[in-house]
C-alpha cells in the first residue's frame, strides 16, 4: 500500500537538516530580526501598557510609561456586558472549532476533486469557485440573511457554521488546489497501480501530503472566524450568543471614547488564545512533510 512509503517519519529529516547555527552571520541575522520584531510589536507593547492605565488616561496621556498602574480595565472589561467575558471566549471557541472542522472537511474534498480528478465541467467549477471569492460580501449579506431568516435560524450559530461545512470559503479550496498541484502525480499513479481508487488515494496519499495546506487552512480559519465581526453581528442578536469581536465592539462609547482601556484589556486577552494556538500550530509547519517515497 502506498501509505507506508509516503507518510514516513517526519521529524528526523528536519533535525538532520537544521543545525547550521553559531556562525557569525547568524548573530547579525538575529540582531536584524530582533530589531525588526521590536518595530513590529511596538504598537502592541503600547497597547499592553495602556491597558494597565486608568481608563480616562489611556488617550489623554499616551506615553509608554504610565503614571498610575491599575487592573480596573481588566475588571471592568471582564464584566462589562453583564456576562463574564469567558462566555464570549467559549462562544467564539465553539464557532471557531466548528468552522475549522467544516472547512477542513469540505474544502479538502472539493480541492482534491478539482485538482486531481478528470471530469467534465472541472474548469467551470473552478471558475465559479474563484468568482465567489471575487464578489464583495456586502452585496451577498442581505440575500443570505433573508435565506437564513426564512429558515428561522437567526440568533443561532447555524448561519455561521453551515456555510463552512458546505465549502463556501472558496479561498481555501483554491489554496488546497494549489498545494495539491505541487504534489508529484507519480504518487497518485503509484497508488493507482497498487489498486487504490480516488477515495483511498485521497485519504492515504494526498491528505497526508497536504498537511501544510491543512495546517494553513486551520490557522486562517481560526483567525478569520475569531476576528469576524460583521456576520456574527448580523446573525447573533442576544448577548448570550455574542462572539468576542461583537462583545469588544460595545466596549467603547462612540461619543466620548470612554471604555478604550477596557477594549484594550479585553482585546489583549482575546489575542492570547489565538497566539497560543498559533504557536502550537506553526510547529507543524516546521516539521513539514518528508516525501521520501519520491525517489
Amino acid at each position: 500500500m502506498a501509505t507506508t512509503t509516503t507518510t514516513a517519519p517526519t521529524t528526523e529529516t528536519t533535525s538532520i537538516r537544521a543545525p547550521r547555527a553559531s556562525r557569525p552571520g547568524n548573530l547579525r541575522k538575529h540582531i536584524a530580526l530582533i530589531a525588526f520584531a521590536v518595530l513590529m510589536v511596538y504598537p502592541l507593547v503600547w497597547m499592553v501598557v495602556s491597558s494597565f492605565k486608568p481608563g480616562n488616561l489611556v488617550l489623554s496621556q499616551p506615553g509608554l510609561i504610565p503614571s498610575e498602574v491599575t487592573l480596573e480595565n481588566y475588571r471592568n472589561g471582564w464584566g462589562a456586558l453583564g456576562e463574564p467575558f469567558s462566555l464570549f471566549f467559549a462562544n467564539s471557541l465553539f464557532l471557531t472549532v466548528g468552522s475549522i472542522v467544516g472547512n477542513l472537511f469540505s474544502c479538502s474534498l472539493a480541492a482534491y476533486a478539482l485538482a486531481r480528478l478528470d471530469f467534465r465541467g472541472r474548469r467551470i467549477y473552478f471558475g465559479i469557485t474563484l468568482a465567489s471569492v471575487m464578489l464583495p460580501m456586502h452585496v451577498l449579506v442581505v440575500p443570505q440573511y433573508i435565506f437564513f431568516s426564512q429558515l428561522d435560524l437567526l440568533n443561532t450559530y447555524f448561519p455561521l457554521l453551515i456555510p463552512k461545512f458546505l465549502a463556501t470559503d472558496a479561498f481555501f479550496i483554491f489554496l488546497m488546489v494549489q498545494f495539491i498541484r505541487t504534489i508529484p502525480r507519480e504518487l497518485d499513479q503509484a497508488a493507482a497501480i497498487d489498486g487504490a481508487g480516488p477515495f483511498r488515494t485521497f485519504w492515504f496519499v494526498i491528505l497526508p501530503l497536504m498537511k501544510p495546506a491543512l495546517v494553513t487552512t486551520t490557522i486562517f480559519t481560526f483567525i478569520w472566524t475569531w476576528n469576524d465581526f460583521f456576520t456574527p453581528l448580523i446573525y447573533l442578536t442576544s448577548v448570550e450568543v455574542y462572539t468576542v469581536p461583537v462583545a469588544l465592539n460595545t466596549m467603547v462609547n462612540a461619543e466620548t471614547q470612554s471604555g478604550v482601556g477596557a477594549l484594550f484589556a479585553m482585546s489583549l486577552l482575546s489575542l492570547a488564545p489565538i497566539l497560543v494556538f498559533f504557536a502550537v500550530a506553526q510547529k507543524y509547519l516546521i516539521r513539514g512533510i518528508a516525501t521520501t517515497g519520491l525517489k
Binding site: G82, D152, L154
Partner: peptide
C-alpha cells in the same frame, strides 16, 4: 435544518424584541 435550530430568532409570539444602541455601560 429547522429541526435542530432553536427558534429563538424571529418574532415569536409573546416575546418583545427591543433594539437600542450604546456602549456596554448603557447596556448594563
Amino acid at each position: 435544518l429547522a429541526a435542530c435550530g432553536r427558534s429563538a430568532s424571529g418574532s415569536t409570539e409573546g416575546a418583545v424584541r427591543y433594539a437600542w444602541w450604546g456602549d456596554a455601560v448603557r447596556k448594563q
